[in-house]
Design a protein around this nucleic acid. Structure first.
Lengths: 343, 343
DNA sequence: TTGTATGCGTTATCAT
DNA sequence: ATGATAACGCATACAA
């Protein structure tokens, strides 16, 4: 069943059938009605390949992420899907993992599929080293590239991010202003946003009199070769070692919620009362916050707003707007629960 | 840059270029080498639309799920993506939500995109009422339909599931054999697998002397119009009400981990010691299990194995095998942690 | 308002 | 082993 069949059955030309399908106004009401009824009756659907061949687009966006089972990314994918579908776009989802080689490979695969744009989800796509980003900037010569929570300054690459620096700066300030003297910062990533958060902590802590920042920071890398994901009990044991080496920590600020869960586990096993003996904050405001005891103070990084803005900007780019901002920054919001006693 | 350009630059016909691209053996080594070098040098990529038009396939699988940000589904999507990519297939991801209308709509959208198959993720696609499944059985007339954790008995529809009935039956048995007399079963879904689990509980409880099953079961529906997701604190309060009405429960068996987290929250607030006063089990063996205190006994429903089998079966179907099982069943595994004291 | 004719870039059939 | 050409199904420029 193709456009020729419909043409024959209705007695009009394929051009007119095509016009009806695409909602052209230059069709008489009578003709339109006739064609429409036959199309419906026959259950005819235009062949997307033929259409794609002519128009060179399939209304499909390529989504690249490292790992769609990650809490944060899974939500991003969901919000993007929702927004894109409203605009009648589909998504091809690619999970690249954390290896550069694979990222490059999937990108070229997406381009060969002639997607209309590529959305990069997560800050692990924005590398410090420009050389490593060349596959992205090259791709942007062909299609718009949108980055969710990552920034690369290059033509046709657009970023939508939240202000992780300021969020962590504020969070740290609040922690110290509430009377804590000796915070421990735990981070698990040195990605673009990972570094922003870290700097936020360091600046605030430095300004408020914390010296010897080195000993107030702990790096627990995720995505090791050993395991795909950090487990809370592993984190607990790491914390335990650090607390054994040096006592006096009265607060822990984490770059991700799961780290804070591990801290709470440590506190519980060490008989520390939270927040009295140890105040704790997480980051992402994920559903983990409400699963632990006490419930976790965290930072809402506005993922939904970011994803929706990302898609709406993309649509504007498609419409040829020249006024789309290269970078859009959202503010985070501190969500206070029971692991802190901020003023 | 198209196949004609390559043809001109190499001095061979487009047919030969095509043969080289598709690895036909009927090409001399010399010609192949020449063509390959020009292709590489020019960075030529075949146009997938033209190819799709001729072959009527784009090596793309449609994935339908209710909500890709759900922990369980997000993992399924990840495992499916991984398996499909190994076979050089892409996925178009659709989140349909829980409304029937939308499921139908997205299905027809996928079919109009000429996907090579559709994978339905989650048990909410298998309806009791055959009428409601007709959009699925109809789709199966066009392409193979694979169901991850749901069963519909119809031509060209294949299911890969885990034995939720047996898992819940065993879990309940263990609970009762460890000395518990009065279990509460909490469930949040009446989907295909939801009913299986429920029956598992009822059968085991009935056999081991629990009477008046009605009062041993509590339904807390997810996906209400109020909120997209159940929150642990809401669950806690629901539990609280039930325990107030009738005391004596010494154990809680949950159809999903997040429910169990809510139970633990209740226990903590009510001063009940787990597992001494109250034994608790979850279901799915999600990462929540290791986030709570004490860590949660749960059922591993072998999601990765299911997804991998689903894809490998699909590949066999594509290869024309007639021996692909209509239904494949995996056994679950009880993962004991610290919320139970099973013998 | 409607129809005709052509291009889009492959793959496959049939010759050679 | 290689080449010429039809077919795939649609959209559109141009003609009427």
């Amino acid at each position: 069943m193709n456009i020729y069949d419909i043409s024959k059955m209705t007695g009009v030309s394929t051009a007119t059938v095509s016009r009806v399908i695409n909602g052209s106004s230059n069709v008489s009401a009578k003709t339109r009605e006739k064609v429409l009824s036959v199309i419906k009756e026959q259950g005819y659907t235009p062949n997307v390949f033929a259409r794609g061949l002519g128009l060179n687009t399939m209304k499909t966006i390529g989504i690249m992420c490292t790992d769609s089972s990650d809490r944060y990314i899974a939500h991003a994918v969901y919000f993007l899907e929702e927004s894109l579908r409203k605009q009648n776009y589909d998504m091809i989802l690619c999970c690249t993992g954390y290896e550069h080689k694979e990222k490059e490979k999937q990108m070229s695969m997406l381009l060969s599929k002639r997607v209309d744009a590529v959305i990069l989800v997560g800050s692990s796509y924005a590398e410090e080293n420009d050389e490593l980003n060349s596959y992205i900037t090259d791709a942007a010569k062909t299609v718009p590239v949108m980055m969710v929570n990552g920034v690369i300054n290059s033509p046709n690459v657009y970023s939508v991010v939240c202000d992780d620096y300021l969020a962590m700066y504020d969070c740290t300030r609040q922690m110290l202003l509430s009377g804590r003297k000796c915070p421990l910062y735990i981070y698990n990533s040195l990605s673009y946003s990972g570094k922003k958060k870290m700097k936020g902590f360091m600046d605030a802590a430095g300004e408020l009199g914390v010296t010897d920042l080195e000993s107030n920071m702990l790096y627990i890398p995720s995505h090791s070769t050993l395991s795909r994901r950090l487990s809370p009990s592993y984190i607990r044991s790491m914390i335990g070692e650090v607390f054994k080496k040096r006592s006096g920590y009265d607060s822990v600020i984490c770059s991700e919620d799961v780290l804070a869960v591990g801290v709470l586990k440590y506190a519980s096993s060490a008989g520390l009362s939270v927040p009295k003996d140890l105040a704790v904050t997480g980051y992402n405001d994920s559903d983990l916050c409400e699963c632990c005891e006490p419930e976790l103070t965290s930072v809402d990084n506005r993922l939904q707003a970011i994803c929706e803005k990302c898609v709406s900007s993309l649509m504007e780019i498609f419409e040829g707007s020249k006024a789309v901002p290269k970078q859009t920054v959202f503010s985070c919001e501190l969500i206070q629960r029971s692991t802190t006693d901020f003023h």
